[in-house]
């Protein structure tokens, strides 16, 4: 049973955490993809930017959260979302819009977004330095240990406070996005534009508004993902290229331009990562006695070491591109 608890701690919880973060990131990427038809490489740095804004605000007002009983970083999150959304809209106005007006190929937009990613990276590292920092400035990270009511179970299930917030906020964000896309006028217009931009424009939808709304949503979601990731571990300014691959893999697995697919893809990639680095010999150890004598179990039976984690999303990406390039849920744009 201890092994099972170990499994829950290291795979179920860890996988849900990474999965949620990838899912929120991938929703943003896939929305941008479906409206503007290019892979937005600056997304990971928008996440970092959002987390950095939270860090700045938290350092400025460290005691704001204590009065309500939540971490200060969470209180600052809506403000950071606004700031990141403003950044996203501004970046679009300054850099992407002229390129779009020029009628360039999508791949040129991709290169433009790489330029933006470098600029953001440079600015963030210039101000934040290159080392990791904790978002818990004044408050303490709560850790809950839930002991299981079974005989012989010594190890408790460990879950931290930010992880619980992460699950709650992910759920809220997904439900809100669902309601927005299906119930509101703007959301419906967005879906129409992702289906057929010309037709949407001809039927009186203001495409400029839709583009701006897309950036606001993508920026807000990026701020959420970045902040929750930094709350769970620490704020690191140089994560961007390691986050990009899993997020893109998640978006492509789910079918590009498909927000619900992106959620599923995020969890697929997140769980695949944790399953691949999990040491399976821990689970097999209780059955050691029933193995034949010639079979000696190696102590490390993980698929890849943690240092090769990035191989997993790449492998998933390659597999999906080979077997089903439209994604699991049939993306619209390919």
């Amino acid at each position: 049973m201890n092994e099972l608890v170990f499994f829950i701690n290291n795979v179920v919880i860890a996988g849900s955490v990474t999965g949620s973060i990838y899912a929120i990131g991938a929703i943003g990427v896939t929305l941008i993809f479906s409206i503007m038809r290019f892979a937005h490489f600056a997304h990971a740095d928008m996440m970092t930017f959002g987390a950095f804004m939270v860090l700045l605000l938290t350092t400025a007002f460290p005691a704001a959260g204590a009065s309500i009983g939540v971490p200060t970083a969470l209180v600052m999150l809506p403000l950071a979302m606004l700031l990141t959304a403003a950044l996203a809209v501004g970046v679009d106005k300054a850099f992407y819009k002229p390129l779009r007006a020029h009628g360039v190929k999508p791949i040129v937009m991709v290169i433009g977004s790489l330029g933006v990613t470098l600029m953001l990276q440079g600015l963030i590292r210039l101000f934040a330095g290159t080392s990791g920092q904790s978002l818990y400035v004044d408050d303490r990270k709560e850790i809950f240990r839930i002991a299981l009511p079974f005989e012989g179970v010594r190890a408790p299930i460990v879950i931290t406070e930010p992880q619980i917030y992460l699950f709650v906020i992910t759920l809220v964000a997904v439900v809100a996005l669902h309601l927005f896309l299906n119930r509101s006028r703007l959301g419906k217009a967005m879906r129409a534009m992702s289906d057929n931009p010309e037709l949407a424009q001809a039927s009186g939808i203001n495409t400029n508004t839709i583009v701006a709304v897309t950036w606001v949503i993508a920026g807000g979601l990026a701020a959420i993902a970045g902040t929750l990731l930094s709350l769970d571990v620490t704020f690191k300014p140089d994560l961007s290229f390691f986050l990009l691959l899993p997020i893109f893999a998640a978006a492509i697995v789910g079918g590009v331009g498909h927000p619900y697919g992106a959620i599923a893809g995020g969890f697929v990639v997140g769980f695949a990562e944790t399953l691949a680095v999990f040491n399976w010999s821990v689970l097999l150890r209780p059955f050691r006695d029933s193995f034949p004598a010639w079979l000696e179990l190696p102590s490390n039976l993980a698929f890849v070491g943690t240092e090769y984690k990035i191989v997993v999303p790449f492998f998933i990406l390659v597999a999906i591109l080979v077997w089903r390039p439209t994604g699991l849920f049939k993306g619209k744009v390919i």
């Binding site: 850099f95 390129l99 433009g112 790489l114 330029g115 933006v116 470098l118 600029m119 990276q121 440079g122």
Partner: peptide, 13 residues
Amino acid sequence: VFVIGLLITLVLR
């Protein structure tokens, strides 16, 4: 890093 990024976007535009 910032300058390289700025250069890329400016040249493209």
